[in-house]
Design a protein around this nucleic acid. Structure first.
Lengths: 349, 349
DNA sequence: CTGAAAGCGCTTACAG
DNA sequence: CTGAAAGCGCTTACAG
């Protein structure tokens, strides 16, 4: 894009097609009627010259950037990939560019001169903990199109939020243990303190117990921190103290993996269920019964909602996407590799 | 970015600071000397107004976009995440925006009006199979800054390429089997036909054999396709036909996982080594001996090289990053969870 | 249906 | 060291 490169401009097209640049712009954007034959000629010239409008010029003249931004604290986690896949493909289909910034709030770099915001994107998809409340306030005040991912609506500003159904799915999961496997002493492993997902899943856990007239025993609730090691140690402790339980809802798959490991090491048996359906869930032994979260769909939906916002359409404050129970063998069900892995071969390690 | 929003412009800053917009631009870009006191006043005004230059205007006036593009066939694979992490952080540190397009060549969408190229980015990081040769040719002719990721230099254009050291690491890996574990009949599983990584690893495999005076037995080379299932079946076939081998270099970790699974199912023992050091490599049983590939470093280096290219600096045609042997237990070594998992707890499934 | 012209917010010679 | 002015490549009223 240096001045020497001399890419064709709208002027070149106009001259060669024998029309004004306004007309070229009109056929480019279908922003007004153009006589069919003229339009045709312009289109041919565009093709012949291999002309592509410069986004920068369009932005400057048209007050929109043609891109949306994704703000997240870090590029990691099981969900990042499908999420990004959903966002990227939806953005591309809508002919929008995607800008990504991974910014930890704590890094707070004052020299960070170009945050993703009103200056360079038309809308923003924001993950928890990637933007400070000051910026959020400003964005909210100016009514900037923002969609919140995997989080509750904020106090600072009323941006629509997208979530995944946790409570119902957790309830279904625990109900399965009760109804199908006749489990009665089902333990629950909480995630990090105050974690919304953990809270909702615990609510689902309690609903299930209640629905079947089982009492919620505080002894049976531990802190698994959504983490392999933490869960591993909690279960080992339980076994040491002789706690009586016949099933564990580990809070998420990672913790479930720790639980399975601890049980095996102690030579104990118990049903174990997780949440998330991480990629290896079907490959470990026993294959994990869990809840599949529609992550890619969340990404696509986020894009759809920012677009709606940009268009000025109404967007509901909360959009909750349904999760799906995935029954494999760790709950006690017989394992069918065909359905359990959805066509993939099982490699039980 | 609508006209009503009225973000502060360089004009507002100039007026309020009592200088011309040229001067504001100068302190903004340190593009010329400005008297200290004036510069100070301008900076204060900028801060007071919370002024941020509009990227679109800068691009249009300055002939550069301030962003670099990443082109890849799909958002998937073990390497995507660390790679993107490296690219994103390096780009951000250089104060460049990152645009991502995932485009399969086969999709060939003619309506795809805004490819990532000279119109919207200053440089491009390209993955194999995400751009057709026509575009590559054009980019090459205009000397556009392009860096090739994980691939050989192209015929179409002479873009610098970044690779990871495959041959040497593979040689080291196989030498370990020979020297430390006294293996003599070491099988090799090829990746997809013509896959560069596979070819290099095979070369390393042969070098190691040769270095120890072992003959390369064609029987011992199979097609694992870098894939769990393919590798699984190859090994099962070998066992069925009674092929004699005491070790398998599976080509990559995924295939190694299939090999381990097949051996276990058949109740056979053999050393197995992979390549890549995927995240679960230390968690499966037996923990995989493999080669760690500096993926994030590849990403960071890619950004550095495009930047060099953009600056007009010389960039070597091939930059090869060193891989690192990771000895765990599948080769036959005693497993030390501390070093093997690098501080993480082992969860052997 | 079409064109001339203003304007988007910057950068960069060109003068001084 | 500083300012007036041209120009980057578009879009969009405004006329016709």
């Amino acid at each position: 894009m240096s001045p020497k490169t001399q890419l064709p401009t709208i002027e070149d097209v106009a001259r060669q097609a024998g029309v004004s640049i306004a007309t070229v712009s009109r056929v480019l954007n279908s922003t007004a009627m153009v006589e069919a034959s003229t339009a045709q000629r312009v289109r041919e010239t565009i093709a012949a010259l291999n002309y592509i409008p410069r986004p920068a010029a369009r932005s400057l003249a048209g007050f929109k950037t043609g891109s949306i931004g994704l703000l997240l604290p870090e590029i990691s986690g099981e969900f990042f990939q499908p999420l990004l896949r959903g966002i990227e493909s939806a953005a591309r289909e809508a002919d929008y560019d995607l800008l990504i910034h991974s910014t930890r709030l704590t890094h707070h770099d004052p020299s960070y001169s170009r945050p993703l915001a009103e200056h360079n994107v038309d809308g923003l998809i924001i993950f928890p903990e990637s933007v400070n409340s000051g910026d959020l306030l400003r964005l909210g005040r100016m009514n900037f199109p923002v969609v919140l991912l995997m989080q509750e609506p904020l106090e600072e500003a009323h941006f629509p939020a997208i979530q995944v159904e946790n409570r119902l799915a957790a309830q279904e999961l625990v109900s399965h243990l009760i109804r199908v496997h006749a489990k009665r002493r089902i333990a629950f492993l909480r995630g990090p303190a105050g974690h919304m997902d953990s809270l909702s899943r615990e609510a689902g856990y309690r609903s299930a117990l209640q629905a079947y007239g089982l009492e919620a025993n505080p002894e049976l609730v531990g802190d698994g921190a959504f983490d392999k090691q933490a869960a591993y140690h909690v279960v080992l402790d339980w076994l040491k103290t002789g706690l009586d339980f016949d099933a564990v809802f580990a809070g998420n798959d990672d913790a479930a993996i720790g639980v399975v490991s601890a049980l095996r090491q102690a030579g104990r048996e118990a049903a174990v269920v997780g949440f998330d359906d991480v990629p290896i869930a079907g490959y470990i032994h026993p294959a994990l019964t869990t809840v599949s979260v529609p992550v890619e769909q969340v990404g696509r939906t986020a894009v759809k909602l920012v677009m709606d916002l940009m268009r000025g359409d109404f967007v509901p404050p909360i959009t909750s996407l349904p999760s799906r129970l995935v029954v494999r063998e760790s709950c006690g069900c017989p394992f069918d590799p065909q359905t359990g892995l959805e066509g993939d071969l099982p490699f039980p390690f």
